[in-house]
Simulated scan of single mutants.
Amino acid sequence: MTVERLWIAIAAVFGGTAVAAGAFATHALQPQLSDRLLAVFETAARYQMYHALALLLVALVRSQGLGAPGLLTASGWAMIAGTVVFSGSLYALALTGQGVLGAVAPIGGAALMAGWGGLAVAALWGSGEESKF
Score class of each variant (00 low, 15 high):
residue 84 V to N: 01
residue 83 T to S: 13
residue 120 A to P: 14
residue 31 P to S: 08
residue 54 A to V: 02
residue 59 A to K: 01
residue 100 V to G: 05
residue 114 A to H: 06
residue 84 V to S: 02
residue 113 M to G: 08
residue 108 G to R: 11
residue 77 W to I: 05
residue 105 A to P: 14
residue 81 A to E: 03
residue 31 P to C: 12
residue 112 L to I: 10
residue 53 L to E: 09
residue 90 L to V: 05
residue 128 G to C: 11
residue 75 S to K: 00
residue 83 T to A: 06
residue 80 I to K: 00
residue 125 W to S: 01
residue 98 Q to S: 02
residue 68 A to V: 06
residue 74 A to W: 05
residue 60 L to Q: 11
residue 82 G to K: 06
residue 104 V to P: 08
residue 99 G to T: 15
residue 41 F to I: 03
residue 83 T to G: 12
residue 113 M to I: 14
residue 58 V to Q: 00
residue 31 P to E: 13
residue 31 P to I: 13
residue 65 G to L: 11
residue 52 A to W: 04
residue 31 P to Y: 07
residue 38 L to D: 08
residue 51 H to T: 06
residue 34 S to T: 07
residue 59 A to R: 00
residue 30 Q to W: 06
residue 102 G to R: 01
residue 112 L to F: 14
residue 111 A to S: 15
residue 110 A to V: 15
residue 92 A to N: 09
residue 67 G to W: 00
residue 67 G to C: 01
residue 129 E to A: 13
residue 59 A to D: 09
residue 119 L to Q: 03
residue 101 L to F: 14
residue 84 V to T: 09
residue 112 L to W: 03
residue 30 Q to I: 08
residue 117 G to L: 09
residue 72 L to G: 10
residue 102 G to V: 00
residue 64 Q to P: 06
residue 102 G to A: 05
residue 69 P to N: 05
residue 64 Q to L: 14
residue 90 L to P: 03
residue 79 M to E: 08
residue 129 E to K: 15
residue 42 E to T: 06
residue 83 T to M: 00
residue 51 H to D: 01
residue 72 L to M: 13
residue 106 P to V: 02
residue 116 W to N: 09
residue 43 T to Q: 09
residue 47 Y to L: 07
residue 93 L to P: 01
residue 111 A to C: 12
residue 115 G to M: 07
residue 90 L to T: 01
residue 62 R to K: 11
residue 39 A to Q: 14
residue 55 L to A: 12
residue 92 A to M: 05
residue 69 P to A: 12
residue 79 M to C: 04
residue 58 V to E: 00
residue 69 P to Y: 04
residue 128 G to K: 12
residue 32 Q to N: 11
residue 106 P to I: 03
residue 114 A to M: 12
residue 27 H to D: 10
residue 57 L to V: 12
residue 88 G to M: 11
residue 96 T to I: 11
residue 28 A to K: 13
residue 57 L to R: 07
residue 35 D to G: 13
residue 96 T to S: 13
residue 38 L to K: 10
residue 62 R to G: 02
residue 98 Q to W: 01
residue 89 S to C: 14
residue 71 L to K: 05
residue 52 A to N: 13
residue 63 S to K: 04
residue 114 A to W: 01
residue 98 Q to L: 04
residue 128 G to T: 04
residue 29 L to W: 10
residue 108 G to Q: 12
residue 90 L to F: 02
residue 116 W to H: 06
residue 44 A to S: 13
residue 27 H to W: 10
residue 29 L to F: 06
residue 33 L to T: 10
residue 69 P to H: 10
residue 117 G to V: 03
residue 79 M to I: 14
residue 40 V to A: 04
residue 71 L to S: 00
residue 76 G to H: 12
residue 70 G to T: 05
residue 46 R to P: 03
residue 36 R to W: 12
residue 73 T to C: 10
residue 53 L to T: 07
residue 76 G to D: 04
residue 90 L to D: 01
residue 115 G to T: 09
residue 116 W to A: 08
